[in-house]
Amino acid sequence: MSAEHQPIGLPTGPGAAAILAAGIGSLALGVFSFAGDAVPAINRAFIFWQPSGALSGVTITAIVIWLVSWFGLSRRWAGRDVALGTVNVAAFVMLVVALLLTFPPFMDLLQEI
């Protein structure tokens, strides 16, 4: 067990769950933004509230996925020490992909491929 994995007062599980869930929620936001932009049927399905259009469904669904994943990971990792290096890499990869998927020129580029 490396020094990073050794318990120091509090296990790393709850923090790791919050970090990974933030990555998952961000990725969900990016994927839904892109899907709504690329596929008209998905765009229409995301219209939860007409005045805000598809933005309402994209954001509400992403937030639900973020909170549900946070809840699930918190329960799974409560009281446990988790390898934070792996969690950080996964969370930041998801975050970077999500940022790219919200950038309109990148969205357009993907749709042209």
Partner: peptide, 21 residues
């Protein structure tokens, strides 16, 4: 309209982790 939503998700996580630890 989309990128702005990363901020509350990230800052909620940051606040939680700081409060917890």
């Amino acid at each position: 309209e989309h990128i702005a939503w990363f901020t509350p998700i990230a800052m909620t996580m940051v606040a939680y982790v700081f409060i917890k630890y």
